[in-house]
Design a protein around this nucleic acid. Structure first.
Length: 217
DNA sequence: CGACCGATCGTCT
DNA sequence: GACGATCGGTCGA
């Protein structure tokens, strides 16, 4: 696939950045937080290797009442216990034997809400991302889908439990903002096992952004 | 395009 | 022992 650079990079500029703090994450409405995370900048800095991208797709997982959530019914295992930490913690788990999926834990301690980061538009460290993903040229698959996001940013399951208030993995806001009409909601991907909850519009994405996963926005 | 399929392994039952 | 909060490739219309 060949794309014009200008078409591929719609939101790759950065204005004044400010790291999101404890108060952003420790709020009860996970749907609101998932929506607000659109347009924010996710950065990883592992040994000075900095990669970042603007978040263009998220999914909310609403704790013990949500059949699609790993914490449904209050389920608490060695893996999912991280979800019960306070907001602003990374929950990373291994999926399908291949992918490391990155989630942001939200709400106060003991309330296991989380937001899955599903897609980014790359900003910094594109050369590093290309190396990590074994790609030669930049296209819109490099950070499209949650498995690819983690691969490009170097996030693996050992990062589960990392505080997002630190300097290794964090999310920042800048002066970028979205209008309501720029945000699309839809059912979550790959949660057919969740019965009625699979139909909920808990997925949020930026309209027409080429990095959003799935078929057509 | 859409449907299908194989890869691959940690986690939980 | 079964099953994924996935991805990328292939095949056929």
């Amino acid at each position: 696939m060949k794309l014009e650079h200008s078409n591929l990079m719609k939101y790759s500029f950065v204005l004044r950045m400010e790291k999101l703090g404890f108060d952003f994450y420790n709020r009860p409405d996970v749907l609101k937080i998932a929506r607000e995370l659109l347009g924010k900048i996710l950065t990883t800095n592992f040994d000075g290797r900095i990669t970042s991208g603007r978040i263009v797709e998220t999914e909310a997982y609403a704790g013990i009442r949500d059949r699609a959530s790993h914490a449904y019914g209050g389920r608490r295992t060695a893996r999912t216990s991280i979800m019960y930490e306070s907001g602003g913690t990374a929950y990373v788990y291994f999926c399908y034997g291949i992918h490391h999926l990155f989630n942001v834990v939200t709400d106060k301690k003991e309330i296991p809400h989380a937001v899955l980061i599903r897609a980014l538009e790359p900003i910094d460290g594109i050369d590093i991302m290309l190396a990590r993903t074994n790609k030669k040229i930049l296209d819109n698959t490099i950070t499209r889908g949650p498995g690819n996001v983690s691969k490009a940013l170097g996030i693996v399951t050992s990062h589960t439990g990392t505080s997002l208030l630190g300097n290794e993995i964090f999310i920042a806001k800048d002066e970028f903002s979205l209008k309501k009409k720029d945000i699309v909601t839809s059912p979550r991907i790959g949660v057919d096992y969740a019965g009625e909850d699979a139909k909920l519009h808990y997925r949020f994405s930026i309209k027409d952004n080429p990095y959003v996963s799935g078929k057509r926005n």
